[in-house]
Design a protein around this nucleic acid. Structure first.
Length: 476
RNA sequence: GCGCCCUUAGCUCAGACCGGUAGAGCAGCUGAUUCUUAAUCAGCGGGUCGAAGGUUCGAUUCCUUCAGGGCGCACCA
């Protein structure tokens, strides 16, 4: 028989769930037309059963040579992994399983590679990340995790739209890497002969839009940070940043709570278990001032430079050249953050570590800033945005003095924008990957990113990377 | 970057402590089988044991180095 193993258009095909919904008890006449991948095959000589799986689920197909005639030859060369179309009436087998009795079978794509073991699926972590498509085909938990991701992001977009925020896109390639403190990835534009940085944050561009009169803006997109990789860090990760003119960090806090509730409802509800901890996300979440937490858990006077330095050295932190606030923050990260099971808003950070945040009017040493923590993990960061260009210039200059990572010049263009007048505003950043991790109950960021960054391996002609990795001892 | 652990057939895993060149299940191939569903029955093929080097008469097993991966630490205000 002559047939194209890689098929073509298969019009008027029904999703498996939709086809199944058409069945009425006792009826043998309802004809359906489904398509999907064969994930199990049980042959019986002149008949066979196959599980045909599409995105919506599984539907069994039953092939009989007396029904298919010469097309039964296709059944004989079917492999697990092949993608096929099946036409025929629905019926129930004697064990009660809804099944399509095939009157026609169309080969839509041949699979040349075997699928992993049917019972255990693909377990090898490395292969699950390198060949995510196989992971998605064989492991329902993986499909479920990414469904949560899609639902969460969709829910957030709807939520932001309801609140009259507009979604915008700002540059990913920046002449100056700003808006956060992290080492950037460097690239180069040939025609302009210009060094560029992949953005570490969209903050400074979104604020330019506030200057331009856009009052509620947000962006959900990738940031790139040239730092270590861990269960909570991928070099490219997805961040939501939102800015609300005429708001402040209190409005941002309310926005965060409401958004997280909506995201949780779109996933698995407000009660979640993450990293072995049972959490209830029902708001309101407690607000804990930064310095009070510090005093409670570190028990060192945050103004006593000598004692702070001693405590730092004890903890293996080199305090040389650090202002007191930096030492406090090092100790805070090391001793306080892991204790924040949350969800909890840590509020009122020392202004010295918040170069883009406005100070409290009555307590100028403190910035109107919060971070949201859950199980020791920073989930969101927000503040009342600093809109005083003179003060902003001083803050940048101070950072330059301290040689903040990746910062070697003032962003004059941003300061110029501020000088035109930026409305007071609340700004918010949310780590989307971490939010999805929590709501999907997975412990590694690689589980919520389809293709996490891994070291390069070369494949041989057989496609087996393990056979052909870079040779030992060879340096290029 | 540092520490610990892992790498055996396409996949999931035994074997190693005590050195004698490997086993199972699934998948594949051949045959039987027209209501099976981890289908069943009979038979067959499949491995540079991650790579290189060392010790040894002999290494998948012991040692060293390297690669990839996992976890933790560091980095990430």
């Amino acid at each position: 028989m002559n047939l194209d193993p890689f098929g073509g258009r298969f019009p008027n095909r029904q999703r498996n769930v939709d086809a199944a919904a058409l069945f009425k008890e006792g009826d043998q006449e309802t004809k359906v037309r489904i398509a999907g991948r064969i994930l199990a095959f049980r042959g019986h000589g002149k008949a066979a059963f196959a599980d045909v799986v599409d995105e919506s689920g599984k539907l069994q197909a039953y092939f009989r040579s007396d029904r298919l005639g010469e097309k039964y030859e296709i059944v004989r060369c079917l492999d697990i992994g092949d993608i096929v179309g099946v036409d025929g009436p629905l019926f129930k087998t004697k064990t009660g399983e809804l099944t399509v009795l095939a009157e026609n079978l169309t080969m839509l794509s041949k699979s040349l590679r075997p699928l992993p073991e049917k019972w255990h699926g693909l377990r090898d972590t490395e292969l699950r990340y390198r060949r995510r498509y196989v992971d998605l085909i064989t492991n329902p938990e993986t499909r479920e995790t990414f469904k949560v991701r899609c639902n969460v992001i969709r829910a957030i977009r709807r939520f932001m739209e309801e609140r009259s925020f507009v979604e915008v896109e700002t540059p990913m390639m920046h002449p100056i890497a700003g808006g956060a403190n992290a080492r950037p990835f460097v690239t180069h534009h040939n025609t302009l002969d210009m060094q560029l940085f992949l953005r570490i944050a969209p903050e400074l561009y979104l604020k330019r839009l506030l200057v331009g009169g856009l009052e509620r803006v947000y962006e959900i997109n990738r940031n790139f940070r040239n730092e270590g990789i861990s269960t909570r860090h991928n070099p490219e990760f997805t961040m939501l940043e939102a800015y609300e003119a005429y708001g402040d960090y209190n409005t941002a806090m309310e926005l965060t709570e409401s958004m997280f509730v909506r995201a949780a409802e779109a996933a698995r509800g407000l009660k979640v278990t993450w990293q072995g901890v049972q959490l209830d996300l029902t708001p309101p979440w407690p607000r804990e001032p930064y310095l009070e937490l510090f005093k409670k858990h570190v028990a060192v006077d945050p103004a006593d430079a000598g004692k702070l330095a001693a405590r730092c050295r004890e903890a293996g932190i080199d305090p040389a050249g650090m202002p007191t606030e930096y030492m406090v923050n090092e100790l805070f990260e090391k001793f306080v953050e892991p204790k924040l099971t949350g969800p909890v808003f840590v509020v009122d950070y020392p202004v010295a570590i918040c170069p883009l945040a406005k100070q409290k009017r009555d307590v100028p040493s403190v910035a109107e800033r919060f971070e949201l923590f859950v199980v020791g993990t920073e989930m969101a960061n927000a503040f009342t945005e600093l809109n005083d260009p003179i003060e902003q210039r001083k803050r940048f200059a101070r950072q330059l003095e301290l040689k903040a990572e990746g910062m070697d010049q003032l962003d004059e263009d941003f300061l110029l924008a501020l000088e035109h007048g930026m409305p007071p505003a609340g700004g918010l950043g949310v780590g989307i990957d971490r939010l999805v991790m929590m709501l999907a109950g997975v412990d590694s960021i690689r589980e919520v990113i389809f293709f996490p960054l891994l070291r390069k391996v070369s494949l041989d002609e057989d496609g087996d990377g393990k056979e052909c990795r870079p040779e030992a001892g060879k340096t290029i």
